[in-house]
C-alpha cells in the first residue's frame, strides 16, 4: 500500500524543500527557525513515514546540528556578556544566541529536505525533471542509468579489496591503498559506463526521433499544494521573526 504523499511528483517535493530553505537562509535568528521547525514537526506525522525510518534517515541532521551549534558557541563573533574565555574560544551572549539560531536552522532546513526525499524514487524524479522541468532527456536519463551502476561499484570495490590481499599487496595500511583502489574503480567504472552507453544507443537512445515517455509525469493539485505548503512554512516563519523583532537579514 502506498501513502498518497509518496505519489506526489518528486520535482514538487524538491521545489518545496528549496522554497523553504530559501526563506530560512535569509535570516539568522532563533524565532524563524524555531517556528518553521514546529510547523514541520506538526506536518511530518501525516506524510506516511514510519518512525524507525524517520529517525534512521534523519540521524545525520541530528548529529550535524549540535556540532555546528557548538562550533559557533565557541568561535562565533562575541557580543554582550562574556561568560568564559580561553585562547580563541569565547562564550558570550551573542555566540549563545547565534549558536541556538544556527542549530535550529540546520534542523529546520535539513529535516524537510531528508523527509521529502525519503519518499522519492530516482526514476520518478528523472521523469519529472525531464517532463516537468524540461531538462534535456539525454542528460537526465544518462545520469539515471549511471546512478544504477553505483550498486555495482560497491561490489567492485569489495572485490578490489579482496584482490589486493590475494595479490600480496594487502598488508600496507588501508588508507595508503585507497588512491590505487580508487583509480582501479575508475577504470572499471569507465568500462562499465561505455558498455552501458552502447546498450542504450542500441535501443535508439540519442537518435533523431523525438522521444515519448511511457509514464506521464503529472503536476497537478497535490503538487501545487506541496509547493505552497513549503512556501507557507517559510513565510510564516519569516512573519514570526519580523513580528517579534528578531528578523536579522543575513546580507548587509
Amino acid at each position: 500500500m502506498t501513502h498518497p504523499f509518496s505519489r506526489i511528483n518528486p520535482v514538487a517535493k524538491l521545489g518545496a524543500a528549496l522554497l523553504l530553505a530559501a526563506c530560512l537562509v535569509l535570516t539568522v535568528d532563533w524565532v524563524s527557525a524555531g517556528t518553521a521547525l514546529l510547523l514541520e514537526l506538526a506536518a511530518f506525522p501525516f506524510l506516511g513515514i514510519r518512525a524507525r525510518r524517520f529517525w534512521l534517515r534523519t540521524l545525520p541532521v541530528w548529529v550535524a546540528a549540535p556540532l555546528t551549534g557548538i562550533t559557533i558557541l565557541l568561535y562565533g563573533r562575541p557580543s554582550g556578556t562574556i561568560y568564559w574565555e580561553w585562547f580563541a574560544v569565547r562564550i558570550s551572549d551573542g555566540s549563545l544566541e547565534l549558536a541556538l539560531a544556527t542549530m535550529l536552522r540546520v534542523v529546520a532546513i535539513g529535516l524537510p529536505a531528508v523527509v521529502l526525499f525519503i519518499t522519492v524514487d530516482a526514476t520518478d524524479l528523472a521523469d519529472g525533471l525531464a517532463q516537468v522541468w524540461r531538462l534535456p532527456s539525454r542528460f537526465v536519463l544518462g545520469a539515471l542509468a549511471a546512478f544504477r551502476l553505483v550498486g555495482l561499484f560497491a561490489n567492485d570495490w569489495r572485490y578490489l579489496e579482496l584482490a589486493r590481499r590475494a595479490r600480496g599487496v594487502g598488508d600496507a595500511g588501508r588508507i595508503r591503498r585507497i588512491p590505487g583502489q580508487v583509480f582501479a574503480l575508475l577504470v572499471l567504472a569507465i568500462r562499465r559506463g561505455s558498455k552501458l552507453a552502447v546498450a542504450m544507443e542500441a535501443r535508439g537512445f540519442g537518435g533523431p526521433i523525438p522521444r515519448t515517455w511511457a509514464r506521464e509525469s503529472r503536476f497537478e493539485m497535490g503538487e501545487w499544494a506541496t509547493l505552497i505548503a513549503g512556501l507557507m512554512v517559510g513565510m510564516i516563519a519569516i512573519a514570526a521573526a519580523v513580528g517579534t523583532g528578531h528578523w536579522n537579514f543575513i546580507v548587509g
Partner: peptide, 15 residues
C-alpha cells in the same frame, strides 16, 4: 538500463 523491469523494456519504445 533502468531500475524497474517495465521501464527498462519500455526504454527502446520511448526512444
Amino acid at each position: 538500463i533502468l531500475e524497474r523491469v517495465g521501464d527498462d523494456v519500455a526504454f527502446g519504445c520511448e526512444n
